[in-house]
């Protein structure tokens, strides 16, 4: 399924009370490929999808993930120490996409450049991914990626940040397809006590120049926060909190259970029936990060 279809279906469903937009937000769940093993990551992603995560974001493990906090760093290190290769990531994407859930890849740029940009776009499309998120590639440097992603029909997700100027937001969303990733706080990935007050404002700034769906990430850890973000965002992106389910589990089946529980909580959070909404007061204090 393409992500555009997923957004369309979600628009027909009911979101939480107070939601500003028609329908509900999608839940995007992130998991590093090969963490803790290739098969283990496939099982995790399938468990997330079966329990209500709408879109699986596969992160390609990289040795120097400057945009990631300690949880994703640790999971990436474990995957790399286990010997996961770029071609394994493609195989994982293929296995997960085969279940029908939309799959996007999140990757730092160097592994793609090393693989060959055009060849990677071709193989990524063949594996069934619908899009790719590039945390350290800005449109200014993306000429080759723009061409390759057009050629093979891969959606492009670049990031916007609270510090982006209006001009840069306009330029960035113009180069996105599928959705744009709004980093809701100034900081790296990782679950936080509070989500950010900067997020609604950033989303509004995107909406002022484009009707592209906006995914909000960095800091969401449970259904209550997902519901909160799901009031104004089109997609709620959750990474570290899900990964922690696996990192902290005593064994694989406990990890999968924890993943299913959190996934279901997140799925409930973005839906109308949710009674898990956080008090609005917890939206404050973006600096309470890290």
């Amino acid at each position: 399924m393409s992500i555009a279809v997923a957004f369309e279906k979600a628009r027909a469903e009911a979101g939480p009370a107070g939601r500003e937009r028609p329908g509900r937000a999608l839940v995007v769940g992130c998991m590093p490929a090969g963490f803790p093993t290739v098969e283990g990551s496939i099982a995790s992603m399938k468990a997330m999808a079966s329990a209500g995560v709408d879109v699986i974001e596969v992160e390609l493990p990289y040795s120097d993930p400057v945009m990631d906090g300690p949880v994703i760093q640790k999971a990436s290190d474990i995957a790399l120490a286990g010997g996961v290769r770029t071609r394994d990531t493609l195989r994982i994407i293929e296995a997960v996409a085969a279940t029908g859930v939309p799959v996007v890849l999140m990757t730092y740029w160097n592994p793609i450049e090393k693989y060959g940009v055009d060849g990677f776009a071709r193989d990524l499309a063949a594996a069934g991914a619908t899009g790719m998120i590039t945390p350290d590639l800005i449109p200014d440097e993306a000429e080759e990626w723009l061409a390759a992603s057009d050629r093979y029909g891969i959606d492009r997700t670049f990031l916007v940040s609270p510090s982006s100027t209006d001009d840069r937001i306009a330029m960035t969303v113009e180069h996105c397809r599928g959705f744009v990733y709004a980093t809701s706080i100034m900081g790296v990935t990782g679950a936080r006590e509070q989500t950010s007050s900067a997020a609604p404002e950033l989303v509004a700034r995107v909406r002022a120049v484009s009707d592209i769906p906006v995914g909000v990430g960095l800091g969401v850890r449970d259904g209550a926060q997902a519901g909160e973000v799901g009031r104004f965002a089109d997609a709620v992106i959750v990474g570290s909190a899900l990964i922690r389910c696996v990192l902290e589990a005593p064994d694989e089946s406990a990890g999968l259970d924890a993943l299913r529980t959190l996934s279901a909580d997140l799925a409930a959070g973005v839906r109308a029936e949710s009674d898990a909404l956080a008090p609005l007061g917890s939206l404050a204090r973006p600096e309470a990060a890290l």
Binding site: V66, M67, W109, N110, P135, D136, L137, I138, D140, E141, F158, L159, V160, S161, P162, S163, S164, T165, R168, T172, T183, M186
Partner: peptide, 20 residues
């Protein structure tokens, strides 16, 4: 003006750093 020395250099950073 974008920091390129031929094909080298440039900016491969999170958007959050571009303003700085």
């Amino acid at each position: 003006v974008a920091g390129h020395f031929g094909r080298y250099g440039g900016r491969f950073v999170p958007e959050a750093l571009v303003a700085a």
